[in-house]
Write a protein that binds this DNA or RNA. Sequence first.
DNA 1: AATGAATGAGGATTCATTCAT
DNA 2: CATGAATGAATCCTCATTCAT
Lengths: 217, 217, 217, 217
Amino acid sequence: MNSKRKVHATVKDQQLVQKRRDEMIRGAVHLFKQKGFHRTTTREIAKAAGFSIGTLYEYIRTKEDILYLVCDSIYDQVSDRLQQITLSEGTLESLKLGIAYYFNVMDELQDEVLVMYQEAKSLSKDALPYVLRKEMDMVGMFEILIRRCIENGELEMRDKEVRLLAHNIFVEGQMWGFRRWSLKKAFSLEEYIEMQTNFLFSGINGFKPKNKGDTNE
Amino acid sequence: MNSKRKVHATVKDQQLVQKRRDEMIRGAVHLFKQKGFHRTTTREIAKAAGFSIGTLYEYIRTKEDILYLVCDSIYDQVSDRLQQITLSEGTLESLKLGIAYYFNVMDELQDEVLVMYQEAKSLSKDALPYVLRKEMDMVGMFEILIRRCIENGELEMRDKEVRLLAHNIFVEGQMWGFRRWSLKKAFSLEEYIEMQTNFLFSGINGFKPKNKGDTNE
Amino acid sequence: MNSKRKVHATVKDQQLVQKRRDEMIRGAVHLFKQKGFHRTTTREIAKAAGFSIGTLYEYIRTKEDILYLVCDSIYDQVSDRLQQITLSEGTLESLKLGIAYYFNVMDELQDEVLVMYQEAKSLSKDALPYVLRKEMDMVGMFEILIRRCIENGELEMRDKEVRLLAHNIFVEGQMWGFRRWSLKKAFSLEEYIEMQTNFLFSGINGFKPKNKGDTNE
Amino acid sequence: MNSKRKVHATVKDQQLVQKRRDEMIRGAVHLFKQKGFHRTTTREIAKAAGFSIGTLYEYIRTKEDILYLVCDSIYDQVSDRLQQITLSEGTLESLKLGIAYYFNVMDELQDEVLVMYQEAKSLSKDALPYVLRKEMDMVGMFEILIRRCIENGELEMRDKEVRLLAHNIFVEGQMWGFRRWSLKKAFSLEEYIEMQTNFLFSGINGFKPKNKGDTNE
DNA sequence: AATGAATGAGGATTCATTCAT
DNA sequence: CATGAATGAATCCTCATTCAT
């Protein structure tokens, strides 16, 4: 949220810097999605962004800066969208809504998520922590949601369980993006949300036959 | 298992080919784990494998062949290990055991899984289907496990739900590998297995307070 | 002249492209003459041209492009020079002059001709037709010269004969270049021109003894 | 004829050496015709010859040896065939026959001639003289033919003219091979022989109109 | 601020040749 | 004698980065 890693720009005009970087990011996301970070050249990015290679380097220092900017920007977008779920009131129902909302966001930003998901590992040891930090923040949002339910007496859960649950929700959202080659063939987004919510809340045991299975747990 | 994509070797002695490729894969996995596929040079792989660059190319045609060989080999290892869970008898208890066993396998092969998970996307359009196919096969193993429970009358579940559940289990196993930077700090493997199994079977609802929460769903 | 095969350049400034390519061609001709196309490395060519290997590849795509550029340029030079012989007036005397002029051109450009002659065959199936086409054009120039003599009533010759004669002249010109190791030891250029012209016009029969040989054919 | 450049073989049995080399040459000619010397690998030659790369190197020292062997062998074949024209009796008629015979030989061996013609230049400074020597010998055969006519009083020609004429005949024979892409479209071998012979003997002047042109030379 | 030509280190791949079996 | 696995120098080409205009 706060602690940004500064990427150096030669150009002074901060508004211009932001504008150019946005163009750059848009182009880069598109290219990374198709060919991955390593197979995309800086020239291609410059071209996709609509300016020359020389100009590109007025706004970054290295190619890796672009990747960082891209990842950073994507997390910001996702974070921005998710911000509002933290406003929930702490009922299981609002937790459900939060999850559904999150899955919808992941569907909308699937390209971006896919890119970030697959390329973040190419960040240098230097930049990685910043991105990982962001991810933890997002997992943290779900933790907050859950904890609010606990505070409200809707749930009884240990800290570790909260954390793992938040991870699970987070990963199931990503899963819709990075396994879509497989999932989209089988489910619509609505189905996916409904079924995942069901699994999340009731688990396998929710599928035990009603007549006889009642007693064994 | 059957439909392999053949990687061309100049050397004829099939045993030798297998031996050299094993050496190659071992070295490559190690390097890919550290630096990723793109940042690893063929020379480094040759060196890590213990032979010259010329020799390397007697056993493959392109660098990408190595990646394919690596992915292929990893899936084979995982598959081999998982084969035995499909022998389960179709009770929820054995499903639990199967899952636990799978998580253990993923822990043991975590380096390999991480590599495959992060680099498979760099495979060419040509090789990717073979690897994706393998992944589907593995998800399929869990589907079999689940379906056997259904046949035994232990569960009532629609086809789509079977498939999604299998996906979830599969991804939670991978998650232990590819999010370990975060998870390992919080959980031991045993904890992880136990807690995930619990979530998987009972869901969030299993954490409702006993006294009052009984009625509302 | 018209149908050129375009060789791709990254650099946009067309004038610069032409300038750099000229430098490149000059260096390449020199090297090809000494070592042949295959034994010459791109680095050597870059160095001979006076720029770096990276710069070289801003003006071509593959090594073969250089060969094409070289062959193309040489044919253009020869063609340009020969253009003026087609202005001849259609007498046997001007045909003679044309031939002499051509032989002189071939002597001046002997290095270039030798190179093109020996390396053109290394052109890809893709580029070869363009070069062959040029050669046919040049043979065509002699055909025109001859046909003009026919139109003027100086000669009576069938089409096929015109074509073969043009070929012969063309090859005798090249011969001076590619067999010079042998011919230059025996003849000066002037001698060569005079004697070849004599053979071309009078043939062997021109050397029959005057007194008795009249009757035997 | 005599002075052969020895190519070293590890194998002692001279008959075997000759046999293996013949196999080798046959395969090499075929490959060189298609791809040229430089683009043909020693492995391919070994394979085409029917033995292993190891065996190949029992019979030669370097790849260039193969080229030398090929060129040498081709010249021997051509020489052998031409040997009999030197038996001619020294009339213009028999000179004509010799030329026709030579053109026929060049047609039969056109692949070989083409190969030798295009690749001989790749021979090292070391081997080239031997091949050039052979070529001079062959030109020499035509010189002999011509000189015999002179001795018989059928012709009056200076030494230089004899030599150039021999060259011309020689080159016109090769021309049928190395320009066949163009010539074969226009002429049959018979036509070519007839027309070339006609040009060789009568020259352009033979095509002057009969009625008026008699006086002007 | 913008441009794009120049650079050259770096990387994938080939292939003639050797040598142990 | 025959084999074919091993070698590594050599080579083509790419691309991130710089810098003069």
